[in-house]
Structures are given as structure tokens and as C-alpha cells.
Amino acid sequence: MASRKKVLLKVIILGDSGVGKTSLMNQYVAKKFSNQYKATIGADFLTKEVMVDDRLVTMQIWDTAGQERFQSLGVAFYRGADGCVLVFDVTMPNTFRSLDSWRDEFLIQASPRDPENFPFVVIGNKIDLENRAVSARRAQGWCHSKGDIPYFETSAKEAINVEQAFQAVAKNAMAQESDVELCSDFPDPIKLKDDQSKPKEGCAC
């Protein structure tokens, strides 16, 4: 029954438009950065294999695909999330103030079994910029008040701290996973893929 399954973690990135969600994801997975802001075109989800406590874990990082811009992320986006990265821009205080609503929205939509200990990570991005407007202390204070969410200050542009932030969410998500045993009453659900070709001739009967 308790067979250990291959671990796949769904991690979603939330935060206001323009805070650098896609850049962070690209920096982390592809080690690339683009200066150009394109309101998230072509960004979908990226996967990366990481080692967490000697265990190989596939992390699937889901971008909002720009659907957050007009508050139109559907509930399907949140379903089954194992971890959540909340991002704000340290030069834009309003993006920091939005963290509250993003966190609430996540808890309501994803409705995790243990909201209090859900593996969030907060990222203050764009620390490479001069015009910083949210202090580390203020951000840390907020994280502390929400049950000690780990806080990271990053620059997706200069690849500062990005790796560490995602590693932390993977680690914490795995800690939650092991709480609930990595086994299932049911077989894995079906993914539709190319290679499952149609039966060539006739039917299966």
C-alpha cells in the first residue's frame, strides 16, 4: 500500500503583475534572464529536478500566464498545489501590500489541508535596483506574522538567492508530503499523451 511514488511537486508562483514571477522561474530553471517585460507570454510551467534530503524530486513550477493581471486566475490553477511562492517587487510597496490578498486567495482557492503550515515562501525581488522602497525588516515582519514564512531577497536579473528560495519551497513542500504518506488509495490519474496511440485496427474487443 505505502509504495513510494515518484515525487512531483506542483509549485505555483503568485504576486502582482510585473514583480518578476516569470523571470524568477526562468532564472531558476533555465538560468536565463530577459529585461523585457512582456506580460508573460509563452510562460507556462517549467520543471526542474532537485535533490531534497537525498531524494530526487521533480518540481513543476507554474506561472500565472498573465491571468492574474485582471484577477482572473481560475480555480484550476490552484488545484493540487504543494507549495506556493509569493513574490513582490522591493521597489513597489503596493506589490508588497498585495501579499495579504494573494496569500488569502491561495488558501481559499487551493484549500490546503493544513493552511497554517502550508509551505509558502516569500520573495522580495529586484534587489538589484536602486530605488528600493520596502525594507527587508518590514517584509520579514510580515512573514513572521504569517507563521514564519521563509523570506528571500532576490534578483532574478543577477541570479541572487533565486536558487535558495526555490530550494526552500521544495524542501518545505516535501516535509508536508511526508506527513501525509506518499501513497494513494487510488491509482495515478491518467495523463493524455501522444505516445498512447489509437489502437491501429479494429477495436480492443
Binding site: Y78, G80, Q109, S111, P112, S184, F186
Partner: peptide, 17 residues
């Protein structure tokens, strides 16, 4: 707000830890 039942963790949502 819709419920989310995780596939990978055994669906055991009814059994609180």
C-alpha cells in the same frame, strides 16, 4: 472557492492528521 483533493498524497482528505 472549490475544494482541492490532492491526487498524489492519497486523497485521504477525510482523515485528518
Amino acid at each position: 472557492a472549490n475544494p482541492v483533493v490532492k491526487i498524489s498524497d492519497g486523497q485521504g482528505d477525510g482523515d485528518p492528521q
